[in-house]
Write a protein that binds this DNA or RNA. Sequence first.
DNA 1: AGCACAATTCAACGCATGATGAAAAACGTG
DNA 2: CACGTTTTTCATCATGCGTTGAATTGTGCT
Lengths: 197, 197
Amino acid sequence: MSVRPSRGRRPGAPDTRADVLAAARASFAEKGFRGTTIRAVAAAAGVDPALVHHYFRTKDDLFVAALELPMDPRQLFAPVVAQGPDGAGERLLRTALSVWDDPAVQPQLLAVARSILSEDGGRLLKEGFLPVVIGPVLAALTRDRPEERVPLVATQVIGLIVARYVIAVPAVAELPAEDLVARVGPVLQHYLTGDLP
Amino acid sequence: MSVRPSRGRRPGAPDTRADVLAAARASFAEKGFRGTTIRAVAAAAGVDPALVHHYFRTKDDLFVAALELPMDPRQLFAPVVAQGPDGAGERLLRTALSVWDDPAVQPQLLAVARSILSEDGGRLLKEGFLPVVIGPVLAALTRDRPEERVPLVATQVIGLIVARYVIAVPAVAELPAEDLVARVGPVLQHYLTGDLP
DNA sequence: AGCACAATTCAACGCATGATGAAAAACGTG
DNA sequence: CACGTTTTTCATCATGCGTTGAATTGTGCT
């Protein structure tokens, strides 16, 4: 029984790079940037820490590589915007929940959310992502006074995301998506097009 | 001009312990537990790191010391609960915002929030603070089906807190508290006592 | 005045982390 | 089959962290 020598290339064609990236995504999603150590990522991928540096030069680079989304958010919300403000609350929420509930993207989204919420490096995202990509989408769903309505919508959506995915409050996390759409959707609709006192 | 010798006790009666605690509160509020280093706290207080350990034995102890609130949340919300569910949405929000906007307590609250949101150690708070102290208060403001209503209220309140104080989204953070009460209060009222689809 | 005690700093420890450079093993191409 | 390239590990470095123990200086009591 021949054992693999400790040093050098492994036999076969294992996609170690992808393993490392997956491990990094999981760790960034669960522990945030600071809480993630290169050594832990390497261990989770069954690999030497130096290999992580070989593929992704620095920890920052690994982070941005792990963040890459498989879709463009503006494109995702394009259908929602296309149908106009009527019923936008429920459509918006249904779309957002469907992508957040997709296990193929959830780690990336969670990593983004955690970095926006806590880490210093998230200032770029906080000042770039929210106003530049989310803001216009919401604004397009209002009929008037978007600068007053968008922040209100944002608070409710942010709260839902944070409670359901970041903190994972059981009472919110275990609810079927359609229940949330039915109950929170009308509130979003009210923020988008209802009377503002 | 006599200079203070580097070692030994300082002349006068400076409350260095309080300075350290204040610096710790500010740092925990802004950077969270992991992001706060004892050395940085000591530097901000103009003090040697060893002194921090002298007063608060370990970093964990310093954290719980920094967390201590000057009031009991249940007592704070007692008047809100006493007046019953009618108009509770606005009263609840007004009370919550008044304490969050109070600079004397905001650092502690932010530290709690940050630790709930991001750090691993926050699990104690997440599973103790939210269901044990906040939950009952909200439940007392409903007339029926609290187990369905409380989570909905929670999402909206959490979103408001996170947007206004943790992320500090300008459009939400700069709004006068009464504007928020007027616009979000009715939504909370709806979650508390309105029709649930 | 003397002395116990509190306050404060210095110097150092052990540890974990991000990063680097060289060496070894398998692969792919000619 | 030989040789350059890619993949992988090892050994190591410098840095920053939490923590500790001893040393020094002021305060307050008797």
